[in-house]
């Protein structure tokens, strides 16, 4: 192949450098951190699930299901993402096993997830090229649709039915090789069959599936989406620089745990080959080259909500405490 330059969005296109030896050390794979993580996650699920059990039959069950659902859904998302990259474990079989289980709980066929996620890295936040981009600029109705989880569930079931019916979209055809489609189609049928079986089981009286799986998944997704919505919103679209298109946030230890350190989102996009357990170390290596991370999970989300509400009301959209692309800032009077 002829020597040529190619600028997928990443460290090179963002002007970020890291010594090769350091990068190699950070990329080192291991099963141990992932296995320890799975152990702690299982423990957290047992404890929070016990809270749901104690609260059954009372109105507290909704709060307990929200907490348990958060412990379930945020790591399901984060682990499905990490295993789609193949970086969660050194052993491939372990990575793929966890990917399948998490994909089943995340409601997305795993190969579809892996293939479509590629253009999110090649063309991060590029309109018409990044299949994970949301409507820009974000308004309150779009925010509500996204954060409520309705948009994602609609999208996941639409994708599963499209795959099952072999109605492949242009986006799918652009990132998935044609000879892979039969596998995706078979998997989509299996996933849909699993979800129908859960529905039937609940209908036949297995209500524990409702309280311990379906309801927590629905409630926990909202919290999960609050993590993901702040990754790129209000940042610059179509920029070659990850520093302009992507946001990192400070984070509490609990949020970092649930999110597999993915609050270091700029760092992840710069070097997607670095596994989740090395992201804090990657942040320390790069911090002099990077903008200061935005405030923590809650403050960043409140600021984003404030901006999108003001945009929908036709008011000024300047954020006070989070990074924002200059063209996202208006004086108001232009309510969409």
């Amino acid at each position: 192949m002829t020597v040529e330059t190619f600028a997928a969005t990443g460290a090179a296109s963002s002007g970020i450098t890291l010594e090769r030896k350091t990068l190699k050390a950070l990329c080192r794979r291991s099963d141990l951190p992932g296995l320890i993580y799975l152990g702690k996650w299982a423990l957290a699920l047992v404890i929070s699930g016990y809270g749901v059990y104690l609260a059954l039959g009372t109105t507290w069950v909704w709060l307990a299901a929200l907490i348990y659902g958060t412990v379930l859904s945020v790591p399901v998302y984060a682990m499905s993402h990490e295993t789609a990259h193949g970086t969660a474990f050194r052993s491939r079989w372990l990575n793929e096993t966890v990917m399948w289980i998490c994909a089943l709980l995340y409601l997305e066929e795993p190969l579809h997830r892996r293939y479509t996620h590629t253009n999110h890295h090649t063309y991060t936040w590029h309109v018409g090229k990044d299949s994970q981009i949301s409507d820009i600029p974000m308004t309150f109705p779009i925010w509500l649709d996204e954060v409520s989880g309705f948009g994602l569930i609609r999208s996941h079931f639409r994708i599963l039915t499209q795959l099952a019916a072999a109605r492949y979209t242009e986006t799918m055809k652009s990132v998935i090789p044609a000879d892979e489609f039969p596998r995706l189609r078979r998997n989509a049928w299996c996933f849909l069959g699993f979800y129908v079986a859960i529905g039937v089981a609940i209908g036949l009286g297995a209500t524990w599936l409702w309280w311990f799986l379906v309801l927590p998944t629905l409630l926990g997704r909202t919290v999960m989406l609050l993590f993901t919505v702040i990754q790129h919103v209000e940042m610059a679209e179509n920029s070659p620089s990850i520093l302009n298109s992507t946001r990192s946030c400070k984070s509490s230890p609990i949020a970092s745990f649930l999110y597999l350190n993915m609050e270091n989102h700029v760092e992840h996009h710069l070097y997607p080959q670095v596994p989740f357990f090395a992201l804090p170390a990657l942040h320390r290596e790069l911090k002099d080259q990077l903008p200061t991370p935005d405030p923590g999970f809650w403050r960043t989300n409140i600021e984003v909500l404030s901006v999108v509400m003001r945009r929908s009301l036709g008011r000024g959209t300047k954020a006070r405490t989070i990074r924002q692309a200059p063209h996202m800032i208006t004086d108001g009077g232009t309510a969409p």
Binding site: A8, R20, H85, Q273
Partner: peptide
């Protein structure tokens, strides 16, 4: 994507962009 920044694990090269 050039593989020079990829990671070598046993006899496998992993591409740095999409792994």
């Amino acid at each position: 994507q050039h593989l020079e920044d990829g990671i070598v694990i046993d006899n496998v090269i992993e591409c740095p962009l999409h792994q």
